[in-house]
Structure formats: structure tokens, C-alpha cells
Simulated scan of single mutants.
Amino acid sequence: MTTATKASHVDIAADRVAKIYAQAVVDAAEAAGCRREVLVELATLARDVLPKVPEAAAVFSSPKVALEDKNRIIKRLTAGRMQATTTNALHVLARHGRLGLLGAVVDAAERLADEREGRQQATFTTAVPLDAAEQSRLVDDTQKALAAALVPTFVVDPAIIGGLVVRVGDTIYDQSVATGLAHLGGRLQDRNIRAIQNGEYTWQT
């Protein structure tokens, strides 16, 4: 189980594009018989190597950098170290201007690989960190409720105030205090609008 602090919202359009490339990566790696190796190599590059080499990360993300320059960096990073499928996947992303989505592609590819093995990735978002026992109990309860094997990740996001948000695949189960307050605020606003329309002067606050 992993725990992280929420840093940014999900870009829905980028997420959809990442899924397309992720499926291509997983399919190609499975055909070559090296799915696990390719996913590990791409994940290492996206999560360990590039964060330590910000210049390379900036080149990958920049649309102003020539394709030839990006390909040279890819060769330098992968030559003799990674599977041919890994290198080819990076070149395809570079050719289509999608290297900046590498992290999202890796996330989506890992989810897809888990699904094909009968597991689903699940993200549990809480306002405060949970200890190991609480995390384990929450995962067990969710697996029983959904009748599914889960690969859990825990995220801490104080913005939800309290409660819990669970994302399993593309489905979100939102039991957060923030969402509850937003719904309550919406209902109160609707009541006040009706009060104005009907000439009622007892305000709902």
C-alpha cells in the first residue's frame, strides 16, 4: 500500500489520451512477452529518473524541442539498459508529442495490467493519514463490498475535510464531508430561490 499527498486535479482529456497509449504499450509488451519488464522500466523512468534530472523532464514536456533531440535523449537513457519495447514506446510518445504524459501513461498501463490479471487499482482519499491497521481494514471492507481484488493507494487531501473518497477504475464513491457540505449548500440555495419566488421571508442558512 502506498500513501501520497494530493498535489493536483486530474486532467480528464489527458487521462483519456494516456489510456489510449497505455493500451498500446501493454498490448505490445504482452505480444513481446515482456509486459512486467516494460512497465517496471517505464515506471522507473517516470518516477525515479526524470524527477532527478529536471532538464531531461523539461525536454520531454516541451513542444519546442525538436523530435531529433528528444530521440537522442531517449537513446541515451535506454541504450543497453531497457527492453526494445520500452524504447519503442518512448519514441512513439515523442513522435506524437506525448512524452509529457509519460507518468499518466504509466499509471494507466499499470491499471490495465492489473485489470487483466483480475485486480483493480483503488485510490482511497482521506483528509488525514490512516495507520496500517486502518488502511488494511478499509481495503478489506471495500473488497468485500465490491467483490473485487484491489491494488490500493492512499492519498491524503485535507480539502475533503473528512470522510472518504474511493476511486476504483473509473468509478468514484464520494462520502467526503466537503461534498456533503456542497450538496447541503446547493439545497439551501434552492430553498432560498423558491422563497424569493414565492414571497417567503424565512431565510434558510
Rank of each mutant, 00 (worst) to 15 (best):
H183A: 14
A147I: 06
Q204A: 15
S136C: 05
D69L: 06
R76A: 11
L101S: 08
I196W: 14
I196F: 13
T85K: 03
L90K: 02
Q204D: 14
E200G: 09
L146P: 05
L77S: 10
V25N: 00
P54I: 06
H91L: 12
D170T: 14
D48S: 13
L77A: 14
V65F: 03
T85M: 04
K64H: 10
T171R: 09
K6P: 02
F60Y: 07
Y173L: 13
V65L: 03
A147V: 06
L39Y: 04
L101K: 10
P54D: 08
Q189T: 15
T153N: 12
K64I: 12
A31Y: 02
A159K: 07
K144A: 13
E134H: 08
A29W: 01
A108V: 01
R36I: 04
Q121V: 11
A46C: 05
V53F: 13
T126R: 02
T78C: 15
L77H: 10
L77I: 13
V106R: 04
A28T: 12
T87K: 07
A104S: 11
G169R: 02
V40L: 14
G118K: 06
D174V: 03
A46Q: 04
E110G: 07
V106F: 00
R191H: 12
Q143V: 02
A28D: 07
C34W: 08
L90I: 06
N192M: 05
A145W: 01
A46L: 02
A132R: 12
A178E: 02
A133K: 14
Q121N: 10
V151L: 03
A7M: 14
P51E: 10
A108C: 09
L138Q: 10
P63Y: 02
A7T: 15
E30I: 04
